[in-house]
Write a protein that binds this DNA or RNA. Structure first.
Length: 327
DNA sequence: CAACAGGCGCTAG
DNA sequence: CTAGCGCCTGTT
């Protein structure tokens, strides 16, 4: 089944900068792959695989969001559109958010740098959990490659005319993966050539010491945490639940709840957000990360997650980030 | 080559 | 409770 349709910008509130949204380094998932003018990714819709190709002229606010979807199963445009609206947060009213930003002199300058940027939400919450754990103490490019490696090695592959795509493996599959070369060697048959390269283990994906956290977290998600229930919890309770996972501290927990479960009141605080908030609101002072988190949640309320996204991108593009390096 | 960035787990105080 | 170290990979 191939379906082709478009979503008019009148059908979502405010602007959209699709490439900025996809490439802004949010820990929900790696950026979608660009090919032939379309960003593409394989997503599961009602348990069926669907390759979604999406395209938008970011310079033209009147331009439609164009979509082509390919699936071995039959599915309606409506269900596909619902998934896309969710992933690119199209039902979020950016105009109202910009009013909110405009009312805070510290935040108003972010608007021009971030026009049309939206949350890039996870199509697979479990992938988001592992992405976020992998991102801790790690560069964007590094964790992105790790997640792509994991998908290629243990996900289900599907072949489309535009290439091969892989799902993210289930918690059950990932919890049974070898941690490092030695473990893979021990599990392997004896009759391997001397120069055999062991690479079907998690550390070979470049996740380093996080490999054991990832395997344990996968095991706990599989046996003890119901992700459906988690998405319906109040934020505070959801934080306590997700913090039980190894490799998940305050910052990673907030990323998971923001990008993976759409809890907009989460305010993930990394060293950069900490420095930015200190610089803007408490010049000369040093705050604890927890204090910054409370400040952000209190001051920004339901917009906190978006403010975090906008502040970071603004700081990066305006040169503020560079000036905050090494203080 | 060495020094350092990055968030979390762990231990010592 | 908090301060401070080590983890792994990549950059300077």
């Amino acid at each position: 089944m191939i379906s082709e349709f478009s979503i008019s910008p009148q059908k979502f509130k405010g602007s959209l900068n699709l490439s900025l949204t996809i490439n802004s380094g949010q820990t929900s998932q790696p950026p979608w792959k660009k090919g032939n003018f379309y960003f593409q990714e394989l997503i599961m819709i009602d348990d069926a695989p669907c390759l979604v190709k999406i395209r938008h002229d970011d310079a033209d606010p009147e331009g439609d969001l164009e979509i082509i979807a390919e699936s071995p199963e039959n599915m309606t445009e409506k269900t596909i559109e619902t998934s896309i609206r969710e992933i690119f947060d199209l039902d979020h009213d950016l105009n109202r958010f910009y009013q909110f930003l405009g009312d805070d002199p510290k935040l108003a300058p972010t608007i021009d740098f971030c026009q049309g940027m939206r949350l890039f939400k996870a199509h697979d919450p479990f992938e988001c959990i592992i992405s976020s754990i992998s991102s801790a103490n790690c560069s964007i490019i590094r964790w992105t490659r790790s997640i792509e490696d994991i998908k290629r090695k243990w996900g289900d592959g599907y072949r489309f005319s535009s290439g091969d795509f892989y799902t993210f493996p289930s918690a059950e599959v990932l919890s049974n993966v070898p941690e490092h070369d030695l473990e893979e060697m021990q599990r392997a048959e004896d009759n391997l050539p001397d120069d055999f390269v062991f690479e079907r283990n998690l550390q070979a994906c470049g996740v380093g010491y996080r490999a054991k956290y990832i395997i344990k977290a996968a095991s706990i998600v599989q046996s003890e945490i119901n992700l459906q229930k988690l998405s319906k919890m109040k934020y505070e309770k959801a934080v306590d639940t997700i913090l039980e996972l190894p490799g998940v501290g305050p910052k990673v927990a907030d990323c998971i709840l923001l990008y993976g479960f759409g809890m907009g009141e989460a305010f993930p605080v990394d060293v950069w957000i900490k420095r930015i908030i200190e610089d803007l609101y408490f010049p000369g002072e040093e705050l604890k990360p927890q204090t910054v988190r409370e400040f952000g949640m209190e001051r920004y309320g339901k917009w906190a997650g978006y403010v975090q996204l906008y502040l970071f991108h603004y700081a990066r593009k305006s040169g503020l980030l560079e000036s905050l390096r090494k203080k």
